[in-house]
Simulated assay, not measured.
Amino acid sequence: MRGEWISYSALEKMGPDVLRARISESPAQAARWVEAGALNGLIHAQIAWGRMLIEGHGVPRDPQAGLRWFTVAATAGSADGTNMVGRCHELGWGVPVDLTEAARHYRASAQKGHAWAQFNLATLLLDGKGVPADRGEALRWYVRAARGGNAKAMTMIGRYCELGWERPPRPAAALRWYRRGAMGEDYRGQFDYARLLLERTGRLEAALPWFARAIENGVPAFCRNIGAGLREADPPALRLLARRALERAVATGEASDLRAYATALAEGLGAEPDAEAASALFARAREIEAAVPEAPAPPRRPPLRQRLARRLRYLAATALR
């Protein structure tokens, strides 16, 4: 396939769905097709090629080149490309972090109806990053993103309702919005829905599957927080979930996460103890810690008498010049 010539008509037939399938099946082989599509002006291919370059997915990582392709797509009028230029400025992909510039691109894309740009802009407005903090305007963009199907925006609307941002707390509305986010596979929505469901109704059996889904879908750092939060819970089923969350957090490769999971195994958190596995994890944590060079100790200040003597010698020397 590598030496096969790729016709423009073949590229035209390769829509976004086919493109995603090719990339997921064989990134290295798909790279030639995606690059060819990008060079031939197919906007969805330009964005996919930019992503592959940013992530080093099937090609050597080149964030600067990825940003250039997003810019090409944005210049052609792509809201998706404009949003990705904003991501580059927000996260420092191929360019220094510039939250003001990120917000500018998010707003331009959001005004075209791009749901992810609407969510990204809302988050900057909520946190006051790159733009003045404005919780009311952030909510308006979250609502528009949610209408566009963005599950994370649905979860954030639930948070507004639960915490009473912009209007008095409405726990029932929060529960409904968290459920929408959970159904959309947002792991934070799944956790918040399970948590509020348990708090409001006490229905442990209904909450457990959502806690489990949040753990399986969540990033390792989020799983670390779930594990720490659930490990002291009374129902044994929640402690078992805490054990699984701490296991998922080990993927960070950090010694502290290895130790936390090892401690859970040694203590028998939620299940039978596993001393052998715990011992192996503790050993790995020690290896990681030993491989990290110790920070140099700060210079010790000489005793006051020595500092005074040094200062007097300096003054004497300068006075004799």
Rank of each mutant, 00 (worst) to 15 (best):
A182W: 06
K129G: 06
A133K: 07
R179K: 13
R104I: 00
R135S: 09
A74N: 01
R170S: 14
T75D: 04
I157M: 07
T71L: 02
A151V: 13
T75I: 10
A146P: 00
D127N: 14
E137I: 00
E137F: 01
G92K: 11
S78R: 01
W116E: 15
Y106T: 03
Q118V: 05
E101D: 14
W69Y: 08
W116F: 15
P171A: 15
W165N: 06
G86I: 09
R176S: 11
R104P: 00
W93S: 14
R147Y: 00
Y178N: 02
L163R: 12
Y142R: 02
G92Q: 03
A133Q: 13
D127G: 11
P171W: 12
V97I: 07
Q118E: 02
G113K: 11
G184I: 12
M154W: 05
T71A: 02
M84L: 03
A122V: 07
G86R: 07
L91P: 00
L67Q: 00
A146Q: 03
W165G: 04
H89I: 05
G149H: 03
N83I: 12
H89S: 09
N150L: 00
T123L: 14
N83P: 02
W93G: 00
R170L: 05
P171N: 12
G181N: 08
G148M: 12
A174D: 13
G181K: 13
L126G: 07
T100P: 02
A174C: 11
G184K: 14
R159P: 03
T75P: 05
A76W: 04
R180G: 06
M84G: 08
A153N: 01
T100Y: 08
R68E: 10
Y160T: 09
A110K: 07
W141L: 10
